[in-house]
Design a protein around this nucleic acid. Structure first.
Lengths: 245, 245
DNA sequence: GCAAATTTGTTCGTATGTATC
DNA sequence: GGATACATACGAACAAATTTG
């Protein structure tokens, strides 16, 4: 096969990283499902039009991430491939949305704080600017792997104690219920994507250059009164969203 | 201000590129709207904890993209800030969705072909495997800037001639109408994100390491019969989606 | 108009990372 | 593994343009 020319030199992104990203995407996309392994290094080197050493750097990075495992004399075996699907709808819930895709999920409270609402946040939550809000920093895992890192704000007056309720239950839905809110609906969701930042790398176990999906979502009670605004970050190679209309 | 430490060394992604991405996102997010310019190089260097030269490399990249313009003795002025918003709903239309966000839009037909439906595509379109489908490769621009690169499939039997109809009108909605389909609805949308591939770099005018949002969408006629399945790729620094529930 | 402060532009050198052969 | 070429990043200056007092 001729050189792929799908990697760019002098772009500020090292060739080994571009190739690692491409191979990771191919694994997630199921391109190597039949053999369960990555093509030989010499084949990959020819495909991408680079030296075999460069491919080895890429595979070493994937091995550090736990995605592949090289076996001398055999090849580079695929250890893990996964992409969780999150439905986005009026009934969007984190845990139920995952359904049978994960055996067990957990929600960790990293940090909580009371603070005054910024102008932007106040507008979204429908409270006066400077009104007290509770901020929760959460990390959600599925089968032990981090799948989202979220910052969520709640009106403090109405949801006093939601920090402990979340810490105990590991679930927004359960925390709301404990505070007397039996139901809520997703009003809107903004979806963007960007590169992983330092917080993402640490909490979501990503490497620099990885892609994160970012949602900014607003939840309201059945009467339409805003109850939660959240910014959530998902590793793009492990997560996708679906919108059913 | 102390070093930001949100950029990572020895990650395979050059510092200047990480910083360029961050500044571009800040511009798109409106962080510098008051002054209309980027903070001075020395300030940015302190923020990111890097040498001023490194910041200059980042700003030079943004200047090549036409996003900023440096003026000696004054500062680095913001030339263009844009992030188009695409609403995703049952009534999702490309052109109407943009609304007043762009003065003029165009849809280019890059290529068209008749081909047999793969198993996966046949299932989605509700036709027999191997049935003839028409594939359109399109590039959509807003105010001259590319905003999406899409591959769309249509049942050939029902929509014969949609390739010419699209080439003439530059619009899926108009092409459907010319073929007698007055209305259609968005059934579902999958959203993922990944790194730009070679086609993205060429058609969407992106550099390696850039982030693209990818949607896989299904449209149906008012009776619910599938009429179009499409895979669309959007530059993540110029586009976001919103889901209103 | 002049001087000071601010900000981008340029040029050295040096060290390290990346990629090839 | 070793040699080589180039890209990346830092540091310390100094120059040029603009704004401010």
């Amino acid at each position: 096969m001729a050189a792929d020319s799908t990697v760019q030199r002098q772009s500020g992104v090292a060739l080994w990283r571009q190739i690692a990203d491409r191979i990771r995407a191919s694994i997630a996309g199921g391109d190597y499902d039949e053999s369960g392994r990555v093509p030989p290094e010499t084949v990959l080197a020819a495909q991408f039009g680079v030296n075999r050493h460069t491919v080895r750097s890429a595979l070493a990075a994937l091995a550090r991430e736990g995605i592949v495992r090289p076996v001398q004399g055999v090849g580079t075996l695929i250890e893990r491939k996964e992409r969780l699907n999150f439905p986005i709808s009026r009934r969007t819930r984190f845990i139920e949305g995952l359904g049978s895709q994960a055996r067990e999920t957990e929600g960790l409270l990293l940090q909580s704080a009371h603070e005054p609402a910024s102008a932007d946040l106040a507008r979204r939550l429908g409270v006066p600017e400077g009104a007290s809000v509770i901020r929760l920093e959460t990390l959600r895992k599925a089968d032990g792997r981090p799948v989202s890192r979220a910052t969520a704000w709640f009106p403090a007056e109405r949801f006093s104690g939601i920090d402990e309720a979340y810490r105990d239950s590991g679930s927004i839905t359960a925390a709301f219920r404990r505070l007397g809110l039996a139901d809520y609906v997703r009003v809107s969701t903004e979806v963007t994507a960007s590169h992983a930042e330092s917080g993402d790398m640490k909490d979501l176990d990503l490497s620099a250059g990885a892609v994160v999906l970012v949602t900014r979502s607003l939840n309201a009670d059945p009467e339409g009164v805003p109850v939660q605004y959240a910014v959530s970050r998902f590793p793009a190679d492990r997560v996708q969203f679906t919108v059913e209309n």
